[in-house]
Amino acid sequence: MRENFKELPMGVRDYLPGEAALRRYLENIFVELVAREGFQEVVTPSFEYYETLRESQSETDLIKFVDRTGELLALRGDMTTPIARVVSTKMKHRELPLKIFYAATVFSGNFSGRNKLREFKQLGIEVFGDITSKLESDLIKLMAVYLRKAKVKNLEISLGHVDILTGLIEEYELFNHFSEIKDALNQKDYVALEGIFERAGKSQTVRESLVDFLQQRGGKAILKKAKKMLSHPKAKKALEELEEVTEYLISAGVRELKLDFSLVRDLNYYTGLVFEAYTPYLGYPLGGGGRYDTLLKKFGWDTPAFGFALGLERIVESIANSIDK
């Protein structure tokens, strides 16, 4: 071996037999579960045209390269956009709802903070067609069932809706600050959030009221408070949808729920209900998902969709942390 040999670049790793076996076991549980529910697997290329993938992710999140023909390509950063492309161009004439699953490696150009890896595996499902509140709750329950089977301890599922924030921004005329508000919420940085509202010219009373509202997390009781505060039609409709899905989930035996008015997720294609799965044995989400009604239109098929993705490495890490403690 040469003296200056470098074993691996930052953000990638090897998996030795014990951990590789656990990963395979957890993947097999997922595949068997979703296949029984009627989901069919789709496999897409690891890289596509950069312009296709940038529909859902920022330039810094994608690993780009130019091939020998001069085409600008990128490694896929998530699976939702490639799946949306496939079903829009090759499967839209099939019977609806169309139920797809995947177990695929994805890549990230931004591996700072909670994104420790540049290469990681996602387990996920996507449904296309008539998306009802009952179907949304069934899919969230499916995620919860899988995570229980995977022996994830102290699971918590946070539910939110992007139109709660959209309604607030329109009602309080915060259009020019949308991106930075969303960034602050994703980081749970409420000090920065109040600073944004101050720069937007909002009074101290309004600032404090907005920050207090967006920090609300809890059960169905917080919906009553929200209904009193929110008057924008979009936000009120979002609360109704959130309440309906919550009631379905509780009646279906999913008790690990927390409503979170600040939950917006960090991908830009979500248009409705959003959710994330957590455990105290991991400092970031196991995964999450939500509704996206406009992404497929970019590929020529105007239909609503709903899905979720879980990080296999994150599940493994949470299990290891729970055993250690």
Results as ranks from 00 to 15, higher is better:
Gly195Met: 15
Lys149Trp: 06
Val211Cys: 00
Glu198Phe: 09
Asp212Ser: 08
Ser203Arg: 03
Asn176Ala: 13
Gly218Val: 02
Ala150Asn: 07
Lys151Tyr: 13
Leu174Ile: 07
Val211Gln: 03
Ile181Pro: 06
Asp189Phe: 07
Gln215His: 08
Leu147Lys: 06
Phe197Tyr: 04
Ser158Gly: 06
Glu170Leu: 06
Thr205Lys: 13
Lys225Gln: 14
Ile222Gly: 02
Glu198Gly: 01
Leu210Met: 03
Met143Ala: 08
Lys141Asp: 04
Ile169Gly: 03
Val191Glu: 15
Ala221His: 08
Gly160Met: 03
Gly219Val: 02
Glu208Cys: 12
Met229Pro: 12
Phe197Asp: 00
Lys141Arg: 03
Leu168Ala: 02
Lys141Cys: 05
His177Arg: 09
Leu139Gln: 05
Lys182Ile: 10
Ile157Ser: 02
Ile181Gln: 06
Thr205Cys: 12
Lys202Cys: 03
Glu198Lys: 05
Arg199Ser: 10
Val211Asn: 00
Asn154His: 09
Phe178Val: 13
Glu156Tyr: 08
Arg199Phe: 11
Ile169Tyr: 11
Val211Ser: 00
Val206Glu: 10
Lys234Met: 04
Tyr146Phe: 15
Lys225Pro: 10
Leu210Lys: 01
Gly167His: 02
Val145Asp: 06
Leu142Tyr: 15
Lys234Leu: 05
Glu198Asp: 06
Glu171Trp: 07
Val152Ser: 00
Thr205Val: 13
Tyr190Cys: 12
Lys182Met: 14
Leu230Trp: 03
His161Thr: 06
Glu173Val: 07
Glu173Thr: 09
Ser179Met: 14
Lys224Thr: 01
Asp183Glu: 06
Ile196Trp: 11
Thr205Asp: 12
Gln204Leu: 13
Lys153Arg: 14
Leu155Asp: 01
Ala192Thr: 11
Gln215Met: 13
Val162Cys: 01
Leu230Asn: 00
Ser158Lys: 03
Val145Glu: 07
Glu171Pro: 08
Phe175Ser: 12
Phe213Leu: 08
Leu155Lys: 01
Lys225Cys: 14
Glu173Trp: 04
Ala144Glu: 07
Lys220Ile: 10
Arg207Val: 10
Glu171Leu: 03
Leu147Thr: 14
Lys182Ser: 09
Met143Leu: 15
Val191Pro: 08
Asp163Ser: 15
